[in-house]
Structure formats: C-alpha cells, structure tokens
Design a protein around this nucleic acid. Structure first.
Length: 519
RNA sequence: GUCCUUGUAGUUCAAUGGAUAGAACGGCGGUUUCCUAAACCGUAGAUUUGGGUUCGAUUCCCAGCAGGGGCACCA
C-alpha cells in the first residue's frame, strides 16, 4: 500500500498467459454482430452538390466512417448512409452561372473534376451577384432589398421554381450537372477510402417530408400563418417558432430531414439513428428530435446527433466566399507529395516498383491526415495549419505505421530463417518492466474498443494505439529480438511484437487507416 | 440581447473526482560498426481569473474574462 493505493505485482507467468491469450485470438478485442444485434444507421458526409468537398467534410467523412467501424467492432449492425442535398437554390445558382457564362464547358472539355467545375460556377455566380448588389446599393437601394432584387438571384429563383414544377429542360440541366458532381465526389470518397451502404437524395425525400408536415398541420400539431407559411410552436419545450414550409409551399431543410428520416425507418429496421453533423446544427437536431416525436415517430426522441467541432484555420473559420477553404482533393494530393519527398530523401523504398512505392506514399499520406484529424476529441474544435499541421514524426499516423513496418520487417526475417515461435506459457525468465507494461497495454485493448464504442470516440482508439506504440518502440530500441540467444526469450519477444502489430492493424482499421509492410 | 460550447507548456493535443497533470512539435543536449534513426534517451516549460462543493478538483457548481457556434421563408 502506497498513499492509500494498493500496488500489486504479477509474475512473468501471469503476463505470458495474458500475451498468449491475446496472441491466439484472431479477432482480439472485437465483438461480432449476431442475429439480434441492434442496427445502427449512421448518416455522414451529406454534401451539397454545388461545390467540391473541403476540409470540414473531410473531418465529417473520417469521423463517420471510423464511427461505423468502431460500432461494428462492438458487435452492432451498421448501415452507413449519405443524404445528398441535390436540390435547392445553391445548385440553381451554379446552373444559372453555367448556362449564362459556361460556353458549354464540361469536365471533359476543361479537363476538370466535375465537382470542381460546378463549384467554380457557383463562385462565379456569387461574384456577379455581389457586383449586382453593390451596383443596386449605389443607386440608393437598401442592402436587404438589393439582395432580393439582383437579376442573378431572380434568375436562380426562377430556375428553382421551374425545377419544382418539373420543367423538362431545367431538370435535364440539373441532372447533367449533378452527375458531374457525383463523379467528382465518388473520386474523392474513393481517395479518402470511405463508402456508403445506402445513399438518399433530398430530391426524393423532400416531398415525403412535406406530406408529413401537412399531415401534422391537419392534426393541429402545427399552424399556418396568414401568408400561408407553416410553423411549429416549440415554446412549450423552451424553444421558439420554427418554419416548416415557406409561404410559397416549398420545403426547408427541416422538412426534408423529416422526410428522409421517415423513408429510412421504412427501409431499415433501425434501432438507433446517428447523424454525424457539425455542432453548428445542434439546435436543428434538437428541434428535429422534438418534431419527429410529436409526429408520432417513436424513434424521434432518441436520435443521436454526433456533434463534432469545427475545423479552424490559423486565420479563423473556413469561408467559401472568401476563398479560405482547404480543398479536400488538393489536401490529399499535397500530402502524397510530402510523403513521396520524405520517403525519397530517406531512401527507404528504392527497390520498390513505381506502383508499389506510389501505393505506400498514399498509405502514409492518408495515415498522416486521418490520424491527425481523428486523434482529436470529436466534440472539440480543432485547428488545422496547412503548412505545419501535418507532420510525419512524433504522435502521428506515419510514426505508428513505421512501427508496424519495422515489426513486419522482423517477422519477415524470422520467416526467412524458418523461426516458428513456440506459443507456450513460461516463467523461466525474468521479464523486464517495459515488456510487462506492453502486455498490460495489450490486455487493455478490448476495454479501449468498448470505451470508444460507448462514447463514440475514434480519438480513444488513436490515443490507445499511440501509447502502445510508444511503449513498443522503447522496447524495440532496448531489447534484441531476433538476435536474442535465449530461444525462449526470443520467441516470447517475437510473439509480443507480432501481437502489437496485430493490434496496430486492427485499431488503425477502425480509424480507416492502412498499414504498410515497409516504409 | 439570449442560448449552447471551449479555455491545460511557445504551439497542437491528452488526462472515468484520485498517486509527481501526459505526449508531440519547436528549443537545448545526447544515441547509429547492432533486427528500418520516419526511431530512442535526457533537459527546460502549462491547468484563464475569483469564489464554492469535496478527505481530494484540469475534471462538478456559481460568477468574471477571452474565443467559437446557434437564435433565417439558407442548408
């Protein structure tokens, strides 16, 4: 007993038993889903189709994908879903700009990813729009009025109305441009290594939401104002009034989310619905939960808003209008360049073919990016400095990948020398403190997985893996493995190393990060 | 204005009410005839302020200060 704490020591035999049980278990720390496991649906990504994905989406995508893996590892059934906001004024702005100034440009003709092309027209729209507002204001019109009366915005609204009225030509243009965007998104998703089991489109769900709202109106849950708009009164819940249908009858974000939710629960036997959406929408989801509940959906009350923090840049928030966004595609390709340069400088992969090397650069680049983002508590805002943030040394993805690669280098050599380590309990040697510590950490893996699942936190996995690797590197530095003459100790250390690498791979898989055999 | 949220080394991040607040980057100083030095070791350096609860508070409560976000017929 020291200062009221009970300090226990265990024998080497105890620790070898712990290690062997972890080593022999093929899915150590993981729980398989069974027939009656609950089904979790996770919505993430949820892009608008008027611009390419940026750093904020990257955090969302990585968190959503990782969360899905973590829940699977905890024995849940998981359906990953994406709600694509494919309709609305934003895409109409791009459509108007393309039709007006696009000169028939296509992704092929301009050699551009479709999402970037469409995004450029959105920016072009905003530029013209701002100019028009400025001119109107110089003619003595108030800012509010100018924003509504500018010719560009009137045209965009006209397109939106035509879209809602199913105008053939408008729908054709809309389909064409959205298709460009989807091709671009698919490429980015593939690059990031994220995927979905089921994609919903708001153009398919908004009418369902509208029906629900009108039904609620009939039942007296909502009320209609003189101007024909429909509202929910949430003052009883301590909130305010919320608009559900505009005076022209068109639906808003909230309405669409109600429709999407209804469709999803019709399509899947969902036990828990998780929305991976930024914390700027906390209020929205609070309201959505109440509205779904009052509309009689029993699952409304316990929907879970996985509310993550914003990604900030050194000079503040990302603002698309001010051009201070970090583009997802550029980010990834920049990371790959740095990975390649670093690797070439160190001369590590000289006997690799170009393809093999390229593949490894990608694994390292994405490892760095993903780990950097996922190691931070999802709930908190995080700062991203494009110049300094992504490092390959220290507490980083590549540091952990490097440890994995070194272990596998040893395991390859062991194989070459036909060494087959005997997996049997033994206490005939004195284990070092660091070896005991590593086994202690290994034994804590199942608990770490469980806690990450309970608290929906990829950061816990990242931090766990880091501490394991930190300990292992110390051991690697201090203790000979293959060159250890005592075969019992050598085999023990091989098993220890192999088990650590297995956990690195398993934990990183949950984070969506791959590990290289060499680097 | 109102509601929510965050303040920890120079910087970016950790820390279930519990032992000496833990890392990384950056700084300074070391380690390579030895399984990958993208590694390892040493060193200096921090809980926003003031109250309260508690045997014990970075953690819980109240107030101040500072940052971020919400309160749209945007999504």
């Amino acid at each position: 007993m020291v200062k009221g704490f009970l300090n226990l020591t265990f024998s080497s035999l105890f620790w070898t038993k712990q290690l062997l049980s972890a080593s022999k278990d093929k899915s150590f720390g993981l729980t398989e889903a069974s027939e009656d496991s609950p089904l979790y649906m996770i919505e993430y990504s949820s892009p608008n189709t008027n611009k390419p994905l940026h750093l904020g989406h990257v955090r969302n995508n990585l968190l959503g994908y990782s969360l899905a893996n973590i829940l699977k590892a905890n024995g849940k059934k998981v359906v990953k879903t994406n709600i694509v906001n494919d309709r609305g004024i934003h895409i109409c702005k791009s459509m108007y700009a393309w039709r007006t100034w696009g000169e028939g440009k296509t992704p092929e003709s301009s050699n551009m990813k479709g999402d970037h092309l469409v995004g450029d027209f959105y920016v072009l729209f905003e530029k013209h729009y701002r100019q028009e507002i400025k001119e109107l204001m110089e003619n003595g019109i108030t800012e509010d009025e100018a924003k509504q009366k500018a010719p560009s915005i009137l045209e965009a609204h006209k397109l939106l109305q035509k879209w809602e009225a199913n105008d053939t030509e408008t729908r054709k243009l809309w389909s064409k441009m959205n298709k460009w965007v989807y091709d671009g998104f698919d490429q980015t998703y593939r690059e990031l290594g994220v995927d979905f089991d089921k994609i919903y489109y708001e153009s398919d769900t908004y009418l369902v939401g509208k029906e629900e709202v009108l039904k609620g109106l009939k039942e007296g849950l909502f009320y209609r104002k003189e101007d024909n708009s429909v509202w929910a009164d949430l003052t009883k819940e301590g909130l305010d009034q919320k608009i559900l249908l505009r005076s022209d009858g068109t639906s808003v974000y909230m309405t669409q989310d109600i429709g999407t939710a209804k469709l999803r629960f019709k399509d899947f036997p969902i036990d828990k619905m998780i929305y991976v959406v930024g914390n700027e929408q906390n209020y929205h989801f609070q309201v959505l939960s109440i509205l779904l509940d009052s509309l009689g959906f029993k699952w409304g009350k316990d929907l879970y808003h996985f509310s993550y923090g914003m990604v900030e840049l050194p000079n503040g928030k990302m603002k698309s209008r001010e051009g201070t966004v970090v583009d997802a595609d550029e980010l990834v390709s920049g990371m790959k360049d740095v990975a390649r340069e670093t690797s070439e400088k160190l001369g590590k992969l000289e006997d690799y073919t170009k393809e093999e090397a390229q593949k490894t650069y990608k694994i390292i680049a994405l490892g760095a990016l993903k780990y950097f983002i996922l190691k931070v508590d999802p709930k908190k805002n995080m700062l991203f400095n494009p110049e300094e943030s992504i490092d390959f040394n220290g507490n980083t993805g590549p540091f952990i990948q490097y440890t994995y690669a070194r272990i596998h280098s040893i395991l390859r050599k062991a194989k070459e020398r036909d060494i087959v380590s005997e997996k049997k309990e033994s206490d005939i040697f004195e284990m070092s403190e660091i070896e005991k510590n590593i086994i202690k950490t290994i034994s804590a893996y199942p608990q770490a997985v469980k806690e990450a699942g309970d608290s929906f936190s990829p950061a816990l996995i990242a931090n766990y893996i880091y501490s394991l690797v930190k300990e292992y590197n110390q051991f690697y530095h201090d203790c000979p493995i293959l060159s250890e003459e005592n075969k019992i100790i050598r085999d023990f250390r091989l098993i220890l190393s192999e088990t650590v690498s297995k956990i690195i791979k398993s934990g990183f898989k949950m984070l969506g990060i791959e590990v290289p055999e060499r680097m």
